[in-house]
Design a protein around this nucleic acid. Structure first.
Length: 597
RNA sequence: GCGCCCAUAGCUCAGAUGGAUAGAGCGUUGGCCUCCGGAGCCAAAGGUCAGAGGUUCGAAUCCUCUUGGGCGCGCCA
């Protein structure tokens, strides 16, 4: 419809020039038609007269009137008016929106989908939490946001590749492996002080127990031998509170233990422990996300990059291009030449490449894998990372615009009006699994995406759990269930719905509430488009609340199951179409649309 | 100290590419009502869009500065 009006206006504009009303050498501004906010301004409005005023040296209203006079006739437009400073408003025929009903009913689950993306291939990488423990609530927002962005892009015709980057290399994983082994040693009967910097969570015990079940005492080394000549540890949280404990360096201590584990176990057996922890935690994360409605096309291993020489290759390419230099025994990338704050180390003094180096390799691989572009969804704490990755891509002649990084701000959980403390260090963090069990998948997902991703959000646990109209999830689902209920009641009354008859009598929908609901329903496809193209799920969430609201308002004002059959059929068609939009929209958000509640 | 992000009604937040009188829900106040599905309906009050400049026909939206908050500034990942 928007497009049609824009065409009418373009015709009128060129007519102005051929008439000589407007100088032919004026460059015409883009014709933009937008939906009005206020219904008294009609259905659509155009501001081109305002934009043209200066170049044309005419008053905006004069231009608008001239345009109005030259607009081609269109049956869908009942009336136009020039208003305000020079707005040209369009009033559509009452039946202009009616076709949306048939469209929704006919397309059914495809209602709202389009082929805007034309099959272009887009990768969406999200969550990608280190596999060193269960996901916590901080990951939940990225998980919900990423999966909805992916679903939206798919809905508008992109081929979407959902990916989880598994950081299965690096020091954190070594700390996990060592933590598991130490717990295993305890299960074998060894006793010692567990390192302050080790992973404290109960899941470490669980993995160690599995290891013990499989290997018995096969991986056991005497504690004295393990801890011999290891640098002293620092106090753990409890000791620090009590003012006791060793006075060393926890980093040096754990690094020493990692080295010792590798020596004692040898490469093969160390790898056994390491992989045991990795696969166990990945399996747990995968299960957790699946229950949260998040599925991936690929779990991409960081270690595989190294094994295939991709990290070395990336370093060599930068070196060959002249962007690396040697200083203090390390290799530095000149990222400051490309807008980064400072240069970054690629290869450490000890010869190990940094995480940054493998991340460059990973992003080069992403671009090389044939995606038209890639979307990274990161926690806001990684924002400083964006310039350096883009710097590396630019330095290597890649188009950094093919990488789009979306930063998701943190969510703060509230219970009984009080902020919940979340400390990842102590192991007391709220896990995503706990959140899901407490408020349910539907509410958790909806709450996470109903706010703009760049906005800090307060997550009200009590509201998310409540079964009342105050709860936006419940409110939307309830609207869906209510439509289903009307159809059940209809059947109980021995009535049937005649869809053909309904479509022939849509002009019976003359009530204000019906017109409002119809106009809102008609916005559904455009909402999906906007939400997808701007990676903004909250546009859809907000829309669904509006649609549900307009439906509930109509429901409270009028009875659907009236004796007048044509009117009844028409109303049922309207609400059936609304149900379709609600169901499709909720499905994109990964939220269920129940038939009864 | 430097950098990125944020600031909208009492609260939680919408306001996609600058458009007309800045919206919703909750809460507050007043009046109705009990209907297909759990209480609903109608109305009112409530705002210097953090502050100050600027850009232009027009700014919550873009630019600069100030204030306040979040985050980041490792040869960690």
């Amino acid at each position: 419809m928007k497009r049609a009006l824009e065409d009418l206006l373009k015709t009128a504009l060129t007519q102005l020039q051929t008439d000589g009303w407007l100088a032919a050498d004026i460059t015409l501004p883009a014709v933009v038609v937008e939906r009005t906010r206020d219904r008294s301004h009609g259905d659509f409005a155009c501001t081109v007269a305002l934009a043209l005023a200066k170049a044309a040296k005419r008053k905006p209203r004069e231009i608008a009137v001239a345009l109005q006079e030259r607009l081609p006739i269109d049956a869908r437009v009942v009336r136009t008016e020039v208003a305000g400073a020079g707005f040209l408003n369009f009033f559509l025929a009452a039946n202009a929106y009616q076709s949306i009903i048939n469209q929704a009913l006919t397309l059914a689950e495809n209602f709202g989908r389009s082929d805007l993306g034309a099959g272009r291939l887009v990768q969406v990488e999200f969550v990608s939490a280190n596999p060193t423990g269960p996901l916590h609530v901080g990951h939940g927002r990225g998980a919900a946001y990423g999966s909805v962005v992916a679903a939206l892009l798919a809905a508008v015709g992109f081929r979407v590749h959902r990916e989880y980057y598994v950081n299965d290399a690096g020091r954190q994983m070594d700390i996990l492996a060592t933590s598991i082994w130490l717990r295993y040693l305890e299960l074998c009967g060894e006793s010692f002080r567990f390192p302050a910097n080790g992973y404290q969570g109960n899941y470490v015990w669980d993995i160690a127990a599995t290891l013990h079940r499989i290997h018995g005492d096969g991986l056991r080394i005497a504690a004295d031998e393990v801890f011999a000549a290891i640098p002293e540890d620092a106090p753990n949280a409890e000791e620090q509170a009590a003012g006791i404990g060793p006075a060393g360096d926890k980093e040096a201590h754990i690094d020493g233990l990692i080295e010792r584990a590798k020596q004692c176990l040898g490469e093969m057996r160390y790898r056994t422990v390491f992989d045991g922890g990795l696969t166990s935690i990945i399996a747990d994360i995968r299960d957790d996300l699946a229950h949260f409605g998040v599925e991936y096309d690929e779990w991409y291993s960081e270690r595989s990059l190294t094994e295939r020489g991709k990290v070395t290759e990336a370093i060599e390419r930068l070196k060959a291009a002249g962007y690396l230099y040697h200083k203090d025994g390390a290799w530095w990338f000149r990222s400051s030449d490309f807008g980064d704050e400072k240069d970054r180390v690629m290869v450490r003094e000890n010869g190990q490449s940094t995480y940054f180096a493998s991340d460059i390799a990973y992003h080069l691989e992403k671009l090389a894998r044939g995606f038209d572009w890639v979307v990274d969804i990161w926690g806001a704490d990684h924002h400083g990372y964006v310039p350096r990755i883009k710097a590396a891509l630019t330095a290597l002649g890649e188009d950094a615009n093919r990488l789009r990084v979306m930063l998701v701000q943190f969510a703060i959980l509230y219970r009984n009006g009080a902020r919940m403390q979340m400390s990842t260090r102590s192991g007391e963090f709220v896990t995503l699994r706990e959140l899901r069990k407490e408020v349910g998948k539907d509410a958790a997902r909806f709450f996470y995406v109903m706010r703009s991703s760049e906005q800090h959000m307060d997550f009200d646990l009590d509201l998310a759990k409540s079964q009342s109209n105050d709860n936006p999830v419940y409110y939307c689902q309830y609207a869906h269930a209510r439509v289903c209920s009307v159809f059940r009641t209809m059947a109980e009354k021995g009535l049937t719905w005649d869809r053909e008859n309904a479509l022939n009598h849509l002009d019976r929908l003359t009530e204000d509430h019906e017109q409002v609901l119809l106009a809102t329903l008609a916005r559904y496809p455009a909402t999906i488009e906007a939400a997808a193209l701007s990676y903004a799920p909250q546009l859809l969430a907000t829309y669904l609340r509006e649609l549900a609201n307009d439906f509930h308002t109509l429901y409270n004002a009028h009875t659907f199951l009236v004796d007048d059959a044509p009117l009844r059929d028409a109303r049922l068609a309207l609400i059936a179409a609304v149900r379709q939009a609600l169901g499709n929209g909720l499905s994109l958000l990964g939220v269920s649309a129940p038939d009864k509640m």
